[in-house]
Amino acid sequence: MSIPFTTQIIYLLASILLLVAFAMLSQRRILSLINLFAWQGLVLSVSTFVVAYSTAQHHLYYSAVLTLLLKVLVLPWLLHRLIRKLNVKWDVETLINIPTTMLVGIALVIFAFNLAAPISQLSESITRGLIGIALASVLLSLLMMITRRKAVPQVVGFLAMENGLFFAATSATHGMPLVVELGIALDVLVGTFIFGIFFFQLRETFDSLDITHMEKLKDDNS
């Protein structure tokens, strides 16, 4: 049994997506992190395009263009602007322990594949293994958010998680209804703006974007 060419392309892109998720997990420099995020968006957009082509679903072309605009151009541009204005462009995160994080990441991928295995068995569509990959990249982004101590990388992790979800929506299920996708895109955009406002408020109040300052609210001392 031979696998169609487009399916092979989608699998290739899916593995690149997972690879980028690992790269983000181990990236300490904020600037490179944002660039990796843009690359992830590009992979996502291309894979949506390929799915649209191979299944002849026209509304997925819109999704692909929307992803390209939002996740490859607008969001990285906004983030670049933010880190330039906040002067954190060359910031390096020192606290993370990369080897341990990587091992935990691998464990998460195995967990995600196990969880998704029964679902993948069911799917007749060409892209049945992809739910596992999507779930794995969501969990990796979640891990990234947990391990980071600075505000900007946490937000990049948050947006990367959204990428993983979007991949699940477009590639594994051939796209949600367009109105839902537009709503999600709007929420992500507004969310990024609010995060931006937040960065400035944090800076003004704490003089840094280090969220270790923000562990004061506990049940006992309040």
């Binding site: 958010m145 948050f158 998680m161 609010i194 969220i211 923000m214 004061k216």
Partner: peptide, 17 residues
């Protein structure tokens, strides 16, 4: 205030996840 910013950040991140 610092406390309200911390609360809002926690709210945003946790509910976002």
């Amino acid at each position: 205030t610092p406390a309200s910013l911390e609360a809002a950040w926690k709210y945003f991140i946790l509910c976002g996840v």
